[in-house]
Amino acid sequence: MTREDLLDADARRDRTDLDGALNYLLVGSDRRPGAAGDDQRSDTILVVHVPADTKSAYLVSFPRDLLVSIPPGGNGYGGGSDKLNAAYEHGGGGEAGVQLLSATLTRLTGLRFDGAALIDFAGLRQVIDLLGGVRMCVDTEVRSIHTGTLFSPGCQQMDGARALDYVRQRYDLPGGDYDRQRHQQQLLRAMLDRAGETNLRRDPVRLDRLIRAVGASLTVDTNGVPLEDLLLTLRDLPPDALTGVQVPSHPQTIDGISYVVLDGGGGALFDAVRGARMPGWVQANPRWVTRL
């Protein structure tokens, strides 16, 4: 597993205490063959909030088109207003891209992070295949703009290519990118469910291949905490204790460009994450919550 300093200094907690609440940044990159660093996008941006008891977790999805203030970056970017996922591109992709994205999120939310992970979607496809596929429930018929595949409503088994194609769709869905955020959250839940169902301990060859595939698809920053200690802390977190959360916001066209703009309730969400008061926020804001 590759280890890099993914967090900007201003976005990093001074010290991570595994006995307290934890906040991790997950970034999904659609790195394409032959693409330069500044031609990469972060189409999945999640903050995982784990309360101190580690019995639950909240997956907070940020809209990729959210209008934000991006600080200057080490790639020569001078800073300015842009879509959230542009921070990764302005930073040059990879390690520096996540650093600028983390600094942008800290400026927006006031959060400092206990760690981060950069996920390569191409590698994730192999992980899903080694798990034997995942069960996804399609709620609205949609045709892929990438492959032309038609996804019909109903629960179905999907291999890695099909699952990742499905969760990338946003056009022709009633909720657009909000539906895509929810589907990405559901995929993470489905992968955890499948890993729990699969008897990997009795198949050491398959387990070894899966571990290698996971390692190859992840770049991590654990803020100095040994990865083994982090996994031990989170070992009892059940998949059914995951709650999907979306940032209160709405689409808006500004100067002919389509953005997503933060609603007033967004600040209350960020306050709840910082103050470890997510159960109360979830109860008060069912519109923005998905039970995965």
Results as ranks from 00 to 15, higher is better:
residue 226 P to W: 06
residue 56 S to G: 11
residue 90 H to D: 10
residue 217 S to I: 04
residue 282 V to Q: 14
residue 145 I to M: 07
residue 262 L to H: 11
residue 67 L to D: 14
residue 48 V to Q: 15
residue 275 G to I: 08
residue 2 T to Y: 01
residue 152 S to T: 05
residue 273 V to C: 12
residue 144 S to P: 01
residue 244 G to H: 12
residue 100 L to D: 09
residue 87 A to R: 14
residue 261 V to D: 10
residue 58 Y to H: 13
residue 265 G to S: 10
residue 262 L to D: 14
residue 95 E to S: 12
residue 240 D to K: 02
residue 116 A to F: 05
residue 96 A to Y: 06
residue 286 P to T: 00
residue 73 G to A: 12
residue 155 C to L: 10
residue 238 P to T: 00
residue 214 V to G: 04
residue 283 Q to C: 11
residue 55 K to V: 00
residue 193 D to L: 01
residue 174 P to I: 11
residue 172 D to Q: 15
residue 155 C to M: 08
residue 200 L to E: 01
residue 222 T to I: 05
residue 84 L to T: 06
residue 135 R to Y: 02
residue 77 Y to A: 11
residue 267 G to V: 06
residue 254 I to S: 12
residue 86 A to Q: 13
residue 222 T to F: 03
residue 114 D to W: 07
residue 164 L to R: 06
residue 169 Q to Y: 02
residue 194 R to S: 01
residue 129 D to I: 00
residue 286 P to I: 04
residue 13 R to G: 03
residue 226 P to V: 00
residue 272 A to G: 09
residue 122 A to K: 08
residue 39 D to Q: 15
residue 20 G to W: 00
residue 4 E to A: 05
residue 68 V to I: 01
residue 68 V to C: 03
residue 257 I to D: 13
residue 55 K to S: 13
residue 15 R to S: 11
residue 281 W to T: 04
residue 118 L to C: 08
residue 58 Y to P: 13
residue 229 D to N: 07
residue 141 E to G: 09
residue 227 L to C: 05
residue 114 D to L: 04
residue 289 V to E: 15
residue 131 L to V: 04
residue 265 G to W: 05
residue 284 A to P: 11
residue 16 T to I: 00
residue 254 I to G: 14
residue 210 L to C: 10
residue 66 L to M: 15
residue 272 A to F: 05
residue 153 P to N: 06
residue 249 S to V: 01
residue 239 P to K: 04
residue 154 G to K: 10
residue 161 A to S: 07
residue 121 F to N: 05
residue 246 Q to A: 12
residue 107 R to H: 07
residue 220 V to N: 02
residue 169 Q to M: 06
residue 200 L to D: 03
residue 275 G to K: 11
residue 271 D to K: 07
residue 126 Q to C: 04
residue 137 C to P: 07
residue 226 P to I: 01
residue 271 D to G: 11
residue 193 D to R: 01
residue 78 G to D: 08
residue 60 V to M: 14
residue 124 L to R: 03
residue 52 A to V: 07
residue 208 D to Y: 08
residue 35 A to L: 07
residue 240 D to A: 01
residue 147 T to K: 08
residue 135 R to H: 03
residue 52 A to S: 15
residue 235 R to W: 07
residue 270 F to I: 05
residue 37 G to A: 13
residue 16 T to K: 08
residue 121 F to Q: 10
residue 223 N to V: 06
residue 44 T to C: 13
residue 139 D to F: 08
residue 169 Q to D: 06
residue 198 T to N: 00
residue 261 V to R: 11
residue 9 A to V: 05
residue 170 R to S: 04
residue 85 N to Q: 09
